[in-house]
Amino acid sequence: MTPLSHYLMASGLLFSLGLAGVLLRRTIIIIFMCLEMMLSATNLSLVAFSRYGIIHGHQNYDAQILVFFIITVAAAEVAVGLAIIVALFRSQQITHTEDLNRLKF
């Protein structure tokens, strides 16, 4: 059967892919998608730990509640971040990070 290390390695690989996307891509929306991917990678490792760290014959549900909270916060973060991106585009027509070189408009 599958050992825990497989799941942790898959989670680490997904996290590094997200990190690589944040470093390499230039479009703000795609950077934001890669942030979502990194959050999901941490969710995978949390769920794996919850399944393998058994207490009283069932899974450790505290970790799954934490995953539930992470998904909620990520949804709120996406809403606010996309609103900021749209506001930025409306005032400056910017969609690339390299054009964004001033803090105050």
Binding site: M1, P3, L4, S5, M9, Y52, I54, G57, Q59
Partner: peptide, 16 residues
């Protein structure tokens, strides 16, 4: 992950 044999144990069975 390679340092500790705890990470290589198979998945425990659920009794819930």
């Amino acid at each position: 992950l390679a340092s500790n044999p705890q990470f290589l144990e198979p998945i425990p069975a659920l009794q819930s």
